[in-house]
Write a protein that binds this DNA or RNA. Sequence first.
DNA 1: GTGAAAGCGCTAACAT
DNA 2: ATGTTAGCGCTTTCAC
Lengths: 337, 337
Amino acid sequence: MIEKRNTVTIKDVARELGIHHVTVSRALRNTGSVKKETRDQIKKKASELGYKPNRLAQNFRNKRSNVLAVVVPDLRPYFFSKFVSDFMNIAQEAGYSVMIFQSSEKTGVEKEIIDALIGYRVTGVVASVTKDTVYESHFNILRDENIPYVFFDRAPEQAEATQVLVNNFQGAYEAVVAMIKSGKRKIAYISTHYQHKIFRDRLDGYKQALKDNNLPYIKELVIKGGFFMNDGFDQAKKLMDLKEKPDGILAVRDEIGIGVIKYLKKIGFRIPEDVAVIGFDNDPMGVACEPELTTVAQSIPSMVSSSFDLLIRQINSNTLSFEKKIIEPSIIYRGSV
Amino acid sequence: MIEKRNTVTIKDVARELGIHHVTVSRALRNTGSVKKETRDQIKKKASELGYKPNRLAQNFRNKRSNVLAVVVPDLRPYFFSKFVSDFMNIAQEAGYSVMIFQSSEKTGVEKEIIDALIGYRVTGVVASVTKDTVYESHFNILRDENIPYVFFDRAPEQAEATQVLVNNFQGAYEAVVAMIKSGKRKIAYISTHYQHKIFRDRLDGYKQALKDNNLPYIKELVIKGGFFMNDGFDQAKKLMDLKEKPDGILAVRDEIGIGVIKYLKKIGFRIPEDVAVIGFDNDPMGVACEPELTTVAQSIPSMVSSSFDLLIRQINSNTLSFEKKIIEPSIIYRGSV
DNA sequence: GTGAAAGCGCTAACAT
DNA sequence: ATGTTAGCGCTTTCAC
């Protein structure tokens, strides 16, 4: 059975020293004026007794936790796990704790998460929304509670909040141009069923690049499907069964792109000689396949530091602002184009 | 500038209704006895006013948060991001929030995290320790505070706490046997510099399998290096530069195994005909490469559910127990053996 | 430089 | 079924 909890409080420390607990509080937080001698004595005794500040009490009293929240649709894809990992490191460095939430791409869960965020009075929120989150409405509740938030990568449309986004249009545009430059003329586009703007932007970039290079937009070459490697495999089959086969394929995710490569190799096409392939996300998985996958990369470290800085600025200035930071992607050339 | 925070408390709800705030508290938590009529009225008014329970106050008052903590060395490797993702899902389902911490493989950070855990009075902890954490000592502080914890995958040696571990010895053993069965006789072993027991167990399994099959243990065929794909690449080069080249390679991580495959293909060896390769972890990345990597897989869902169940049992029974759950790994045959 | 008083929002225990 | 009391551990404000 559990034994008595021997939680040490500032009052215990105070009693031991025959002083007032308020003085202990002051000393331990290095605020107010406490004689150096007393302060040292207090700190010594506190660590001697194994005093650990009760954050629950502190947070309650201060009406705010020291917690930053990160909300992502799914923690497993490389982009998100890397973002979260990096974000945690710089947040912890700066003295914040981090709570992570996963919406599983469900708007309903996202709403519950926001209620929890308010309940916990988190200090700030960094969020990437679900594929279906079109409106900012449920995030507005945070604003009512004066909890600053910034969106990264995926924001609601017309969000009136600070955002750190990738220029997806440009990324897709450049990827298509890269294939055109290497001599490709019939470039296909594989997307997911997800409706979020980032995917529409990529499609727009694709279309514009074709247009600017006097290439026709062929409806059959634009298809949508699932999110994973096997989906890419299946989509590639559909594309290569066409009478007018593509000689280049842009996939909205690296995983999909890898599935494409696997199918192409299976049916004996050479990459990039017969068909070029480009993906999105700079997933390390792209290095595992052969040829290595050329990809449109967004700089995660700069997204992390922008998100963090913009959030902290709002927290410290006690204002809710609306800034838009656009990260320009770049193509990482490997072997598939 | 920030406008006045309009935080609604139970007292506000009570005042509006001309009743006592304790009744509101009872009604909202569905405890004690409150007339159904009153209860309904209260709930209606509460949601009307947009009341959100102040978790900070609740947790403080209850002396415990409703938070489960997960501590991992690094969030990015597939094994950990998948574990955390799954764990969060079932924890959220059960009404807990989750805080995630990353030790970055540093014992010092791990200690700080534990202090934070105590400060936040988390309800329970699930942890996988750093590569250098040999002793349980800093976790014992949690026990003093009656915070239950369970280790998963990586535990301190001789930990006196509940653990969910993988039978690493067996995994390595079977992997070697698999290669022997396919006719390999000179099997190499690539590990990391990490000292943690899980890697030593794998090495032991490797040795035992050789022994049981009357194969000599050749020192030169066992090498250690980094953690990543390029490290595997480099190690493979060393191995294949040997006069006595191996015809099978067991790598302690899939990423390393993929690096090995890349090197072997580069210098023209066929896989698995000339050299077989097996990795550990069932990282989806292994499906991206060619041939697809055969791997020793631990079932992450069962690790998650065991960890969660064992933790919750301790929380609910108010006891700290010491159980050891061993998950048996299995080999997933793909193309590299 | 230190102490005394008050209260954050909530809930357990007791009283009615 | 509802109300009263008290206090969790801490920090802010004001007094000395």
